[in-house]
Amino acid sequence: MDLLRAIAIGVLFGIALYQLLRRNVIRIAIGLVILSNAVNLFLLSVGAYNGVVEAYAKAVGQRSDALPQALILTAIVISMGGFSMMLALLYVIASRYRTGDSDEVRGLSH
């Protein structure tokens, strides 16, 4: 299971970085979403390594840690707010520059 999780994190990271380096701004935004999921999966595996029983169950045994899940929840909420703002920004950029190619969105560099 650990190996599977590690591979999943790695694959998500690879896809996210590849999308981040594409030229289309929408792909960059999608890359960020995937990256945030990779990070959240990493945070999950941080706390899940010794989890055998649910954190608040009445059973005895090694309890799992509930804190990373709270962290992930916070991170998901924050990134949702961020991405919705980013999509609004992309809408403004697309209508102002008439392009979705990040190489042509370069009014500031000269």
Binding site: M86, I93, R96, R106, L108
Partner: peptide, 17 residues
């Protein structure tokens, strides 16, 4: 500044990373 959204996009991308 008419380049405001572009600057905000760059900043947001880098800061999110």
């Amino acid at each position: 500044d008419r380049y405001g959204p572009e600057a905000a996009f760059k900043y947001f991308l880098i800061s999110t990373l």
